[in-house]
């Protein structure tokens, strides 16, 4: 079957919509907002599909739109100070104790969108760091730096995770 890029995009959107919803949801933690974000990302993707030069990057390209929509949404709607933006963050003993029990999933809520993106795609979507660099339009060392920073903030021991893969 010889699909046009646009048809390929539509197929992709229909087949993987649940995955895109999960990603959006992880950013905003609200069902209706996540639906709005998916909606806007899909509309934008179809409007801009003619600007995509290399079909190979179709999904990467869509991830980028989805993340942009999510991050823009958070900036516009929330007035939150993130964990890693507090320069003198100094957790108290109780907080540390509590953090040992929380899962990575709930912990990442405290991360800024940039750090959150790296965690979502590396650990939940299991993408390679190179792919994350592609999606976020940064280079590999930036992605690595963000990943280490995020993990440090989350105080998570990930010795058994090969995150350099």
């Amino acid at each position: 079957m010889n699909l046009t890029t646009e048809q390929e995009l539509i197929e992709l959107l229909k087949n993987k919509k649940e995955k895109y919803y999960r990603i959006a949801f992880t950013y905003v933690k609200n069902r209706d907002d996540a639906l709005d974000i998916v909606h806007n990302a899909v509309v934008k993707a179809l409007q801009k599909i003619h600007t995509l030069k290399n079909r190979e990057y179709l999904e990467t390209w869509f991830y980028r739109i989805l993340i942009n929509e999510s991050v823009t949404f958070i900036r516009k709607n929330k007035n939150i100070l993130f964990f890693d933006e507090l320069s003198n963050f100094n957790p108290t003993v109780e907080q540390i104790d509590e953090e040992q029990h929380i899962t990575l999933y709930s912990a990442i809520d405290k991360l800024s969108p940039k750090l959150k993106t790296v965690i979502i795609f590396r650990f939940f979507e299991e993408l390679k760091l190179e792919e994350i660099a592609e999606i976020t339009a940064t280079n590999l060392s930036t992605v690595k730096a963000r990943l280490y920073k995020a993990l440090k903030l989350l105080k998570i021991e990930l010795e058994d995770v090969d995150y350099d893969r």
């Binding site: 919803y21 179809l46 899962t103 990575l104 995770v161």
Partner: peptide
């Protein structure tokens, strides 16, 4: 180890299908 279960269990709303189709049309 990374606990992915919470992520994978994010409930998918029934309207998602409708929302995506609607957005494809609008796009």
């Amino acid at each position: 180890m990374i606990d992915k279960s919470k992520y994978n269990n994010i409930e998918i709303p029934d309207e998602l299908d409708h929302v995506v189709n609607d957005a494809i049309f609008e796009g």
